[in-house]
Amino acid sequence: MHTHNPRRSLKARTTGKWKQQAKKALIPGYGKKGMGWIRNPKKAAYNKIYRKTTFSIWGLFK
């Protein structure tokens, strides 16, 4: 079961649109789909399996 981290959730919600636009303009490949497989394939494989096998408690109520 996936446990939520309130600090990370808040950080994800408050990261500004301008900050993401600046990174996208400066860093080639930032925010592009599939970049994780190029940069760190071991981590990308782990994350893919983790996302398919874990569930959130809130998902049970939907």
Rank of each mutant, 00 (worst) to 15 (best):
G31T: 10
H4M: 12
K48P: 01
N47Y: 03
Y46W: 13
H4Q: 12
G29C: 03
R7T: 14
R7C: 05
R8V: 01
W58R: 13
P28W: 01
G36V: 03
Y46Q: 10
A12Y: 00
G59P: 02
Y46N: 06
I38Y: 01
I57W: 06
K62T: 12
T53P: 01
K32W: 00
K32T: 15
K23H: 05
K11A: 11
Y50S: 13
T3D: 14
I38W: 01
G36Q: 05
K11I: 07
K24G: 04
T14F: 11
K33M: 06
K62C: 11
G36W: 02
K33F: 03
P6F: 04
K17N: 04
K42I: 10
G59E: 13
K48D: 09
Y30W: 09
G29S: 03
K33V: 13
Y30A: 08
G29N: 05
K17G: 00
G36D: 11
P6R: 09
W58T: 10
G16Y: 02
I38H: 03
W58F: 11
Q21D: 15
H4W: 14
S56R: 11
G29H: 02
G36M: 05
P28I: 02
W58H: 09
A22H: 07
R51Q: 14
T3F: 06
N40M: 07
W58K: 14
L60A: 14
G36H: 02
T3P: 05
Y50M: 14
K19Y: 04
M1L: 15
M1D: 13
N40K: 11
